[in-house]
Design a protein around this nucleic acid. Structure first.
Lengths: 219, 219
DNA sequence: CCGCTTGTTTGAACACGTTCAAAACACGCC
DNA sequence: GGCGTGTTTTGAACGTGTTCAAACAAGCGG
């Protein structure tokens, strides 16, 4: 591990600790630098901006989520159970960061943020997210309709972002509201996926899917 | 018109002009003050923050949209046509501000922003938006199912926010993409509303509506 | 050991949004 | 006109994220 890598690590660790303790806004770059035993300029040598520190955090959370989801994806067979399990794991993983994750999601709506679902530069982060939901879909028995299955990962990822948005504003005791949100919306999603196979709904489903494909910007 | 009101106006005008010309970020409070022929501190006497100037702008845009929608709501009868007309008017009204509206929407996802749909303090702005869509629904013949009609305004307002989000990232020639987005999603929405009356879909519809009501934070 | 290049690190400086004590003003009242 | 009180207005000052020229360190070929 080179000196540079160690310095980078020191800065990131300091930042995450301070974020957890004081929240994102209240943590200044000078604080981060001091905690890491480094100059402010040096922090900028490794992270182009304060937001980049946030992104590094996002990566860590995602990895933790993937790891936590592994058992669910191994054991659960039915689509609904797989989705429910993965969503609840996400909730678990992000819970410790409730205080400051708000800011992370704020940036997700910013056109210039790579976290933004519409942003071309944020491909890796989004793709990794979609990959997880692809695993949810792929392992599900019975299989959802094929055309739907193709777009389902992207749709589910968007859905999970919606869950996070809800969670951010949830100040209920031990986040019951979000738990309820997940349980009920997962059922709704699962029902929709099941119903989407119905012939009566074929035109609507095809319209919706075509729309999603045609209009999705840069993919 | 008192002196204070004139000063306030001067500052707001200066801000909107500079926003249009240079965008939101590039416009500094010092520039606004100078353009208005006033001190920086004075700008803060009338507007608590730079964001508040943005909100004032938002109000102006909304008023313009309501005015532009009036003929549509007078003439069109079918739900689909009313919705389509109002959405296209919105597109027209916001078009001149494409360069800097991105920032406005970014703040809409910020939990602390009153523009945020989940935020309790942003009630007036949201309610005014919903009121417009209530007019879209109320005047429609044939009428949509009653229980759906109750929640439609809120749903449609959320939908229109989605359109704006899409528009922000649309850099196509004369915003064709967003135009296509509107035309196709309006059809999709109209179809969904029509289908929602079908008995087969009643359980799903009731589930979805109950969810929307139960989980909508602070309303 | 010396120069050279390349990769790190520093800390002062910049422009920004925002605050605040104090100054300037407006206006009713004696 | 002068006083007093509340409203406007000022501009210096604060702390922020960020930049940058310059200093330093680390390897490397001679």
């Amino acid at each position: 591990m080179s000196k540079a890598e160690r310095t980078r690590e020191k800065i990131l660790d300091a930042a995450l600790e301070l974020f957890r303790e004081h929240g994102y806004e209240a943590t200044t770059m000078r604080m981060v630098a001091e905690q890491a035993g480094v100059s402010t300029g040096n922090a900028y040598y490794y992270f182009a901006s304060k937001d980049m520190l946030l992104q590094a955090f996002y990566r860590e959370v995602h990895d933790a989520h993937v790891a936590a989801s592994a058992p669910v994806l191994r054991d659960a067979k039915v689509f609904r159970d797989r989705l429910l399990g993965v969503m609840l794991k996400k909730l678990e993983v992000i819970e410790p960061y409730h205080r400051f994750s708000a800011l992370m999601f704020r940036s997700a709506a910013d056109p210039r943020s790579p976290l933004n679902p519409f942003h071309p530069a944020g491909d890796d982060i989004r793709h990794e997210g979609e990959a997880l939901f692809a695993a949810v879909v792929d392992g599900a028995r019975p299989r959802p309709p094929k055309d739907l299955a193709a777009d389902l990962p992207a749709l589910l990822w968007t859905y999970s972002m919606g869950m996070v948005l809800y969670w951010i504003h949830d100040h209920s005791e031990s986040r019951q509201q979000t738990r309820a949100f997940i349980e009920r919306t997962v059922d709704l999603v699962a029902t929709s996926v099941r119903l989407a196979g119905n012939p009566l709904l074929r035109p609507l489903r095809r319209k919706a899917l075509a729309l999603f494909r045609d209009l999705a910007p840069q993919r």
